[in-house]
Every structure is written in structure tokens, then in C-alpha cells.
Amino acid sequence: MQLELKEIYKSFGSGDNKTEVLKGISCTVEEGSMCVLLGPSGSGKSTLLNIIGGIENADSGSVSIGDDVMENMNEKQLSQYRRRHLGYVFQSYNLIPNLTVKENIEVGAYLSDEPLDVDELMKSLGLWEHRNKIPNQLSGGQQQRTAIGRAIVKNPDILLCDEPTGALDYNTSKEILKLIEEVNQKYGNTVIIVTHNDAIKNMADRVIKLRDGQIRKNEINKQKIPAADLDW
């Protein structure tokens, strides 16, 4: 489903301490595409991702996924919105420590009426042999794979990745980016990656650059290269 943002404004604080973080963001991310949100610290990219993810409210403006418009939703409606449309991957994997890999992924599957096959997914994520391990028995890369599995098992319309490689080394980061690319291609989810790593933009279909709460650049990447070929 297509994601559409219209005139998103967001500020924090009040009076003299008021800081405008997003100043009228409008853009569209095509269904099934991969979009990278780039920008320096404080540019508003994570705030924008959180607004798309329905875990933060915009002061004004609207977010729509297909026909579902997120505007003035109450807490319950927001939960349903996230449940229907979104998968989340964070820099810190946030896995449940006393559940196995398989069970962590099932936590995501539980939220969907038509989840992907958990065993199949674990095989494609390279987690099959680790399925009965608990998070502290895994490497950082394996934990992030599990977190991706948990996010995509419900086959969400949009996969939101907040600095997914931020805590990983170069090789593992590339592995994870390859995996996200595979997921995007295999399951056709729209993927939005927030990163400060400039190199990642090369694997995206669309690159949006933010600075001071405004879109400075929003362009289609015509020279898209596979994640495996990324270098930084």
C-alpha cells in the first residue's frame, strides 16, 4: 500500500523552549518500494518515522496507508493501525529475553490473521538452527535477524527500520541490509529505513533527505545498487 504524508508538523516544548522538529513534511512512498530517510542528528527523521509508526502524534497533518488515514485516532485505533499495517525494527533489538528465537517471532505472528509461515521464515532468515536459543545466546546480527523476523512475520504493509545497523559491525550490517532487501523483494512490503549512514541510500528506490525538519531532497534513486555491493 502506498504511504502518503501530508503537511506534517511537529514541535516539542512550549513558549521560548518550543522547538519545531518537523515543518510541513509532505511526501509519498510507493507501495513495495524501499525508502531511506537520511539526515543528521536532530533533523527529525526518527520523529517522522515514529509519526508514520503511530507511536507519536503529529501536531497537524495526516498519514495515510492506502485508504486508512491516521488522524485523530484514539489509543485503541492506533494499536489496530499498527497491528494491521506496520512492522518495527529498532537499533536495539528489543527481543523478549526469556523467549526463544521461534517464540519471539511468534509474538509477531500472533498479531496477524494471516501470518507468514514461521518455520519458512526462520529458514529464509538463516535462523533455523538457532530457533531454540534465547536472545542472550545469539550474536548481535542473529538478534537483529530475529527482530526482523518478528516484524515481518505478520506480513506488514510497511516495515519501519530505525537505524537497524546502528549497533552492528560492518559485515553484520551488510548482512542485515541484504536481508531487508530480500524481504522487500520477496514479500513486497514497503520498507522505510532511517539511517545516518549515507551509503545505505544507494540500495533505496527513494531517498528523502531531511534537515531542520524539512525535506531538502526527495528523489528516486535511479542508480540503485544491491545491498551486497554497498561499501562505506
Binding site: 489496530q80 509474538v107 498479531l111 505478520k154
Partner: peptide, 8 residues
């Protein structure tokens, strides 16, 4: 994370 993923 669970709440962000849609758990109510």
C-alpha cells in the same frame, strides 16, 4: 516494541 508492533 510490542506496543509499537500493535499489541494493545
Amino acid at each position: 516494541t510490542l506496543r509499537a508492533s500493535g499489541y494493545t
